[in-house]
Amino acid sequence: MPNKMKKIGVMTSGGDSPGMNAAIRAVTRTCAYHNIECVGIYRGYEGMIEGDFKDLTARNVKGIINKGGTILKSARSKEFRTPEGRKKAYEALKAKEIDGLVLVGGDGTFTGALIFNQEFGFPVMGIPGTIDNDIYGTSHTLGYDTALNTVVEVIDKIRDTASSHNRLFFVEVMGRDAGHIALNVGVGAGAEEILIPEENLGLERLLESLRRSKASGKSSSIVVVAEGDKIGKNVFELKDYVEENMTEYEVRVSVLGHMQRGGSPSCFDRVLASRMGVKAVESLMEGISNQMVGLLNDKIALTPLEKAIKGQSKINKELIRVSDIMTT
């Protein structure tokens, strides 16, 4: 395998997600396997500009595969959005004699990497790390599977309370403008209705669905709402609307928030991070750049960063049909 890489940097950027540490470990140990030095870049692009670097070895990344969050920290960087900031970052990398970068993050991270490569010709490889699963070119992003398991467990607990008090619960989950988390956990947790941005249910149809559930003998209901759903201005407006039109229900709202991002990564995310980390390093060694490592049909595949940024992840239409049948 031809290799001009003597030193590779790895960083995490944007929102944290379970599996980022497993990816850092995978990149570091793949570098060690191929006798390449590995450098951790702290606090994303901000740390890159400031030269906040630490040499990583196979030994000092032990014990992190099971940890959520990111040991390299993450931060937003306004300065990196300027040509002057990116020039500082480039000079810091060159001063540290770093030859290529592996960046773990989402579309904002990849956009920065693409511009950086275009300006300085610096080799970059992306690993998708976000619980939202909203990146084109991969069926799973790091942290997505863990987030699903976390949310299903929480909804199971909420259902115990809903059943005890004959209540209707609106449970808002993360996902920005994508309904992947809501759709999957809604089916997995047996929700009576699922509201996602990709399918506009409408307020009247929501009421009809809840009335059917009530008529069928259900004394409590769970409605999973993606945070980007467009039916109401927010989940609390939905609560008020249902209370006005269905007085027989006690309605409660549970916004799960950042608990969905934390926690020990699932086995799936740990294995996926390991596969992606190996591919990212070995791609740089082969002279490949400007690509994102993804999972397609259970195989590790590369997608140009530009496509990953501009493309749209597609909601699973078959799962929407399954959810319609399951909520009957």
Rank of each mutant, 00 (worst) to 15 (best):
Gly277Phe: 05
Glu204Thr: 11
Asn3Tyr: 03
Lys310Cys: 14
Lys239Val: 04
Ser313Ala: 15
Glu237Tyr: 05
Val235Asn: 05
Ala92Ile: 08
Phe170Asn: 00
Lys310Gln: 14
Phe110Pro: 11
His34Arg: 15
Gly105Ile: 01
Lys73Thr: 09
Asn133Phe: 05
Thr70Asn: 07
Gln312Ala: 12
His165Ala: 13
Ser74Thr: 14
Asn66Gln: 13
Ile155Thr: 02
Ala32Arg: 07
Glu227Lys: 11
Leu168Ile: 03
Lys88Ile: 03
Gly188Trp: 03
Phe268Lys: 12
Gly108Glu: 08
Leu103Asp: 01
Glu227Gly: 15
Glu248Cys: 13
Glu306Tyr: 10
Asp52Cys: 06
Arg167Phe: 06
Leu101Met: 13
Leu56Phe: 10
Val235Arg: 01
Tyr136Gly: 03
Ile194Lys: 01
Ala162Met: 11
Gly257Thr: 02
Asp229Gly: 07
Leu284Ile: 06
Gly228Trp: 08
Ile288Arg: 14
Ala273His: 00
Lys78Cys: 04
Asp240Asn: 14
Ala308Glu: 08
Thr328Arg: 14
Leu93Val: 07
Tyr249Leu: 12
Glu243Pro: 07
Gly262Glu: 13
Val242Ala: 03
Gly105Trp: 01
Leu183Asn: 00
Asn3Cys: 11
Gly68Phe: 02
Glu79Gln: 14
Ile155Arg: 00
Ala280Lys: 05
Lys310Val: 06
Ile131His: 10
Thr138Ser: 08
Gly47Cys: 05
His180Phe: 15
Val151Pro: 01
Lys218Ser: 14
Pro18Leu: 04
Glu97Asn: 15
Ile49Lys: 04
Asn21Leu: 03
Pro304Glu: 09
Glu91Asn: 15
Thr130Pro: 00
Ser220Pro: 01
Tyr144Cys: 12
Ser216Ala: 13
Glu318Val: 11
Ile131Tyr: 11
Leu56Tyr: 04
Phe120Val: 08
Asp132Gln: 09
Gly14Trp: 04
Pro197Ile: 06
Asp160Tyr: 05
Lys230Asp: 10
Lys317Phe: 02
Asn290Gly: 07
Pro18Arg: 12
Leu114Ser: 15
Gly257Val: 04
Ala191Pro: 10
Arg176Gly: 09
Val185Asn: 00
Ile194Asn: 02
Gly202Lys: 08
Leu319Ala: 08
Tyr249Lys: 05
Asn149Tyr: 02
Gly228Val: 09
Thr328Ile: 12
Gln291Tyr: 12
Tyr241Asp: 09
Ala280Thr: 08
Leu296Arg: 09
Ile24Val: 15
Ile315Tyr: 13
Thr28Pro: 05
Met285Trp: 03
Thr109Trp: 00
Gly263Leu: 07
Phe170Leu: 08
Gly262Met: 10
Lys6Phe: 01
Ala226Met: 06
Leu210Lys: 06
Glu199Gly: 04
Pro83Glu: 01
Glu248Ile: 12
Glu248Met: 12
Thr161Cys: 08
Ser77Cys: 11
Tyr136Glu: 10
Gly44Ser: 15
Ala191Cys: 07
Met174Arg: 10
Ala215Pro: 00
Val281Asp: 04
Val171Thr: 09
Arg43Asp: 13
Tyr90Asn: 12
Met259Cys: 15
Gly232His: 04
Asp324Pro: 01
Asn184Pro: 01
Ala226Trp: 04
Ile65Val: 11
Ala301Trp: 03
Ile131Glu: 13
Gly143His: 05
Glu199Tyr: 14
Arg275Leu: 13
Ile64Trp: 07
Met174Phe: 03
Gly126Asp: 09
Lys218Gly: 04
Tyr33Lys: 14
Phe53Asp: 07
Ser213Met: 15
Gly15Asp: 04
Gln312Met: 02
Lys94Ile: 15
Ser289Trp: 02
